[in-house]
Design a protein around this nucleic acid. Structure first.
Lengths: 159, 159
DNA sequence: GCATAAATATTATCCGCATAACTAACTCTA
DNA sequence: TAGAGTTAGTTATGCGGATAATATTTATGC
């Protein structure tokens, strides 16, 4: 692949990241949320009370990031952290009533954002998009070694 | 669109952002660069000396971000900033010899990253990808090109 | 010409996310 | 059971990127 194509792809991914995040930020701001926090709320809404280590895994970010995000969401009254009885190291994170209400609002914003994002694309492209993006992600994922999608390492030499 | 689909898409975009950036960071680290800085170097390599306001536009980030990035790249000896003679407000940014050499290395990394990213996808999907991503980006772009009617680019990118 | 608006760049402050280093608690084994 | 190794969580620090507020300079309108 020549540089033109490579740059077109890498740059497109970078710009999509910036703009999609900026748009999410604009939509979340009225709720008092910053981008990234909505993922934590949605994860708690999906799977119920969770240990921070599991949140770190689910959100795809590192434990220190979870520590800071949970602290701020807790200060905002949206989540609650209680020590785990079975493991004195762990703390269980769960939504408060305020957090549940907020998660419901986030869900609606999320639908609006997704529809806005794919405007003008043919339905079959939209349908294929999540799978394509997940393939791209797993291709560059240095985190979880799993993913039966395709063999990851070995095709491109390390720099 | 229901929440399941919307979340699949939004989450996929978020995770791709995190992982692609993390992979870029890992590749750029040996060069002493942090992700985001490579875009500045590549832009200078493409278009030559540029004032910061144009860089801000080209990179898709705000002027204060450019100020900090240029300061660090200047401290690293990769770029040079000289006051613009025709406009006492502006400063012209350009690559040093060290910066040019670094940009060449970045270009190679960029190709490797792009190839790694699209591993396992059919060629026609790879060909369509930049265009699709640019459509997604412009759909959520609250910044740049005010194009009230009509789309800036087609649904499929130029090859 | 002069007052006002716009543009360029900077500083300060915030958040997300990262790594490194550390404490505390759990587990496993010798 | 004692020690080693592992895991959960935190703090400290750094960068990218954002907004808000502030000079300074340029452009514009009257």
């Amino acid at each position: 692949m020549d540089f033109e194509q490579a740059d077109a792809l890498n740059q497109a991914i970078r710009l999509l990241s910036l703009r999609h995040r900026a748009r999410a930020a604009a939509l979340l701001a009225p709720l008092g949320l910053h981008p990234g926090q909505e993922a934590l709320l949605l994860e708690l809404d999906r799977n119920g009370p969770t240990i921070q280590a599991q949140l770190s895994e689910a959100l795809g970010c590192e434990p220190p990031s979870v520590t800071l995000m949970t602290r701020k969401l807790e200060a905002g009254g949206h989540i609650r952290r209680t020590p785990a009885p079975s493991d004195k190291r762990a703390s269980i994170v769960e939504l408060t009533d305020s957090g549940k209400a907020l998660a419901d609002q986030v869900k609606q914003l999320w639908c609006a954002l997704a529809e806005e994002t794919v405007t003008g694309l043919p339905a079959e492209t939209v349908a294929a998009l999540p799978g394509i993006l997940k393939t791209l992600t797993s291709n560059v994922d240095t985190r979880g070694p799993r993913h039966p999608h395709g063999r990851r390492r070995g095709l491109v030499a390390e720099a």
